[in-house]
Amino acid sequence: MRGRRLRDRLKGWGGVGAMAAVCALALAWALLLPLTRPDSGGTTDAGGPGGVTRATQARADKNCPTPAMEDAPEKQTLSPSSADGKTIQAIKNRPGERRKLIVGVDQNSYRWGYRDPNSGGKGDLEGFDIDLVHRIAKDILGDENAVQFKAIPTDQRIPAIKSGRVDMVVRTMTINCSRLGDVAFSAPYFKTGQQVLAPKSSTITGYDGSLAKKKICTAKGSTANTKLTEDRKAKTLVSTADLRTTVPNQLDCLVRLQLGEVDAVVTDGALAASQAAQDPTVELKGKPFTTEYYGVAMRKDADDLVRRVNQVLVDYRADRANGWQASYGRWLSATLGKTSSTSEPPSPPEYDRKS
């Protein structure tokens, strides 16, 4: 019986063997990746015996410098500008083949940043985040293919930026107050929220008391990991929820779920929806219990680059034919719905950071 249940879980993306291989590649290819180009022409209550949690802005640091930063970290960015500064000039001055934008991305998040297994052996990177990277490179260097991709595990996004290994990270990275102490963010480019993913046959109903005595997987350094840890301390998450399983890459949690090593995964709903599309034996449980935004992360002192990316985002949103909406339709409408209104970032964005 256990063998049959395991086989049922191994449908989806070619089974655990394929998924484990993808995760192994994610670690093995965490160095330089080849240049790629996509083929693109209210409040919710979650009640239960463990108490009630309310959908709020995800907060990863209760010691934020100001209440404004804690309440709306997505507004802590600089106003747009097309001007070149020292950071952009340094990128443009890279000689020869090195004259590229160096970007940290994911290579195993389906429809966000992943290698197409049907690309004829090229292993091209594709997805919503990858489209945005090409748009930024086009604006700064005049060539959408002038990109050097580097695969960055979830828990290495900030170290990669601070060490200078990458110019920016475009990797479904939530803007929050804690991270603002280490990196600078662009204005938001996507709206999402934390959600529970579990087998369809599971008794788990969402972020509620049904998580009692359940093993929950999160990625190290993720918003989900911090949120769950804080909620359990605050007793808004049932105390018997087992949070000990953490992994370097978010997709590793899906493998653990398929193997039966954990009972549920908590991650951004946008990513969880893509994972449910990969494996038809799992599904989203309950509604999102946070509201948060993805941003492009850069060095704290790269003011000119932050302003330039914000200008790119303004233009990207306005371009209905080949911009944000077109990319959403290409990659995400199949998993998140044809109507993108629930995923759209604030419009117009606010730029509260002055320096």
Rank of each mutant, 00 (worst) to 15 (best):
R2D: 15
L6R: 10
L6T: 08
W13H: 14
G14Q: 02
A18P: 02
A26C: 07
A30W: 02
L33S: 10
L33Q: 13
T36Q: 07
R37E: 09
P38W: 04
S40P: 02
S40W: 10
T44Y: 09
G50F: 01
G51I: 07
T53R: 13
A55K: 15
T56I: 10
T56L: 15
Q57T: 15
Q57Y: 09
A60L: 10
K62W: 13
K62G: 14
C64Q: 10
P73Q: 03
S82A: 15
D84E: 11
P95M: 00
R99G: 04
K100R: 14
V103A: 14
V105K: 01
V105F: 02
N108P: 00
S109A: 11
G113S: 12
Y114P: 00
D116Q: 02
N118H: 14
K122C: 13
L125E: 03
G127P: 00
D129Q: 03
I130D: 04
I130Q: 01
H134Q: 11
I136N: 04
D143C: 08
E144T: 09
V147C: 07
Q148H: 12
A151K: 06
P153N: 12
I158R: 06
P159V: 09
A160S: 15
K162S: 13
S163H: 04
N176M: 05
R179V: 07
L180I: 03
V183T: 05
S186K: 07
A187K: 14
Y189S: 04
F190C: 00
T192M: 07
Q194D: 11
L197Y: 02
S201D: 15
S202W: 01
T203K: 06
T203L: 00
T205E: 06
Y207P: 05
A212N: 03
K213V: 02
K213L: 12
K215G: 03
C217Q: 03
K220W: 04
T223E: 05
A224S: 10
A224Y: 01
A224I: 02
K227F: 11
L228C: 04
A234S: 12
T236K: 13
R244P: 00
T245Q: 13
V247P: 05
D252A: 15
V255I: 14
R256P: 05
R256C: 09
L259S: 09
A264E: 02
T267G: 12
A270R: 08
A276R: 09
P280Q: 06
T281N: 11
G286N: 01
G286E: 04
G295W: 01
V296R: 07
M298Q: 02
D301T: 09
A302N: 00
D304A: 00
D315H: 08
Y316N: 02
R317P: 06
R320I: 08
A321P: 00
G323V: 01
W324N: 06
W331P: 10
W331A: 06
W331F: 08
L332G: 08
L336D: 08
K338N: 11
S340F: 11
P345I: 04
P345D: 04
S347F: 08
D352K: 15
